[in-house]
Amino acid sequence: MAVLVDDQEESLLYADRLTNSGLPCKKLKPMKQAQELVSAIRREKYDVVLLDYRLDDSNEVAYRGGTVAAQLKEALPDIPVVLLTSEAKLRQSLEHNPQIYGLFDLKLLKEELRKPEQWKLQATRIRDLAMGYREIATGVGETSKGTEAAVWSTLAKLLGATQAEEQLLPQFCQGPAPTRTTEVARWLSELRSFPGALIDAAHVRALFGLNELSFKEPAVQKALQKGRYIGVFSELEQRWWRSRVSELLRTIAREQAMGTAQERVAALSKKVKKPLKADQCVVCEGGNINQVCHICRAAADPGHVVRAVVDARPAWADSPLVCFQCIRTGRAEQVRFASGTEGLIEELHRGGAAEH
């Protein structure tokens, strides 16, 4: 059972849409004090909580969803919390307080729940999140008194990692293994959210040099299946293990594995027996691509991106990169770049730096 907390009657109707889509969902208006609301949620033992961010739109409430989420994480660590908000409010909240982002296990836009074709999809995502938390709670409970190695082994099973990947986890993730449900869920969320051990479709495309349409070709998806992440929360968003995808690339492309996009795609096309098209650098239209722009999500060659500082990434995560094109066009206006790149950024703003 889910519960949706919102101060707007219109938004509370989303609970009915989720219920009709297979996810039983109750409605709850915010109470005067955040602690009262947390206590009410605690009494009912819900499986997942959906919170509006701007709960203080009402004159009766002096707190926001982030306050409630933080208290829920402390009081009910085995229950996932979903942020329910509009795209504009999400962008505004992240600009002013990016730490808020980490309090929620899933971000759900109200714009999506206004589309009938999205109701079942979003209900399924929320249900998968709740089931994932249950699996984490069970696994953590079984090894709560075990050795550090036993905990890492449990975490590896939750990840769907191979034995070789399991042995690398402590070194890769650094620090002690997380042991509480909330800690493990956040750890898994970070592994999914930030490219490192796991990468998303844009990064897989760049590694193989494929354009977006060719990447969606069923034969290509089948060829990449062995690299797919299938652990907890895998149904929320598709991810691939970087090491497995890289191995697939080396196996398929052989000597062309480090070649141009055209060479990599030609090798993959021969493997899947389908005509495929290569992508090109968003900046120079060249074929030496293996990077992804953090802003436009387009492929770029290593010489046409700049390292940025846009979020609090874990030490093991890849640095976010921004392409020259986004810098020139002003899309990166609010981005803070790594020290030592000031001259390059200034030159790009003037329309220069054709090569780097």
Rank of each mutant, 00 (worst) to 15 (best):
Q33G: 15
R297S: 15
E166N: 04
K29Q: 07
E9W: 04
A308E: 02
L207C: 14
D7K: 00
W119L: 14
N59E: 06
V220E: 11
I327K: 02
V310H: 12
L198S: 02
Q92L: 09
D56I: 06
F208H: 11
V245N: 02
V204D: 10
P195Y: 01
L84N: 10
V265Q: 06
T341A: 05
E9R: 10
V283A: 07
A123K: 00
R205C: 09
E263W: 05
G227D: 07
D56Y: 05
V309P: 09
E247I: 11
T329H: 09
A299I: 15
R307Q: 15
L83E: 05
Q163P: 10
E347V: 08
L83C: 14
K110I: 12
S339T: 11
E342Y: 07
P116T: 06
L158N: 09
K29H: 06
G287A: 12
E346G: 11
A354K: 10
D128K: 11
S339N: 08
K73Y: 05
E237F: 06
Q171R: 12
L129W: 02
D279K: 15
F208N: 14
G102P: 07
R180A: 03
G343I: 06
A177Y: 00
R297W: 11
L4P: 03
A123L: 01
G209N: 06
E347L: 10
F172Q: 01
A338P: 06
A315V: 09
D128Y: 05
P77H: 00
R297F: 07
G22S: 02
L348R: 10
L51M: 03
A202Q: 12
L84W: 03
E346N: 15
A300P: 08
L90M: 06
L113G: 04
R254Q: 12
L188S: 03
Q174P: 08
V309S: 05
A70G: 15
E142I: 13
E74W: 03
A266M: 12
A62V: 15
F194G: 06
L106S: 10
E165W: 02
L268H: 04
L321V: 00
G303H: 05
S319C: 14
Q225S: 09
E112D: 11
E212G: 12
E263P: 08
C296I: 03
A261R: 12
F104V: 04
K157T: 09
S93A: 07
A177Q: 01
P218D: 05
A69Y: 06
A354S: 05
L109R: 12
R264Q: 07
W240H: 09
V68N: 04
K32E: 11
Y46R: 01
W241P: 04
I136H: 02
A266S: 12
R331T: 08
E333H: 10
R114L: 08
A123R: 00
V151R: 03
L37W: 08
